[in-house]
């Protein structure tokens, strides 16, 4: 009986994650991508093709830092939900309750954080190796 109760308590993960929160991480990727691309495109067009890329590299670096920090914040809050969801090692999220729906969306959002993080690092990479606008 106590076991059962503990399980129930452990599964209390709330119901808060909605579709907007799910797309938060890829939206951070999109904004980061646009900031980097637009900054580089405008700078190289205005400064000429032989211009030093340093200002763009700084912008990309800063944007990447902010974006990853944002992702980390989202990630940590979602990680808690995942920790609380582990009952019977079941990560199928196939239950028919609002709570299970919340755990499912949290899991999807969490994994999207990882994917977005990888994509952000990919996008930042060219700024590490290129030095002029050419």
């Amino acid at each position: 009986m106590t076991d059962h109760l503990q399980k129930e308590v452990k599964r209390e993960t709330g119901e808060g994650t909605d579709l907007w929160r799910v797309i938060l991480a890829p939206t951070i990727w999109a904004v980061h991508f646009l900031v980097c691309y637009v900054a580089a495109a405008i700078y190289c067009e205005k400064a000429g093709r032989m211009a030093d890329l340093l200002p763009v590299r700084l912008i990309v670096g800063t944007a990447t830092f902010i974006a990853l920090a944002g992702l980390a914040a989202v990630f940590i809050s979602l990680w808690k939900v995942r920790g609380l969801s582990s009952v019977n090692d079941d990560y199928n999220y196939a239950g028919n309750t609002p709570e299970e729906r919340h755990r499912f969306l949290s899991h999807v959002a969490l994994m999207l954080c990882v994917l977005s993080g990888v994509a952000i690092l990919y996008a930042a990479f060219p700024a590490l190796v290129l030095e002029v606008c050419r």
Partner: peptide, 9 residues
């Protein structure tokens, strides 16, 4: 286009 733009995409 500048190589950095190509790099992002």
């Amino acid at each position: 286009l500048p190589s950095i733009s190509l790099g992002f995409f």
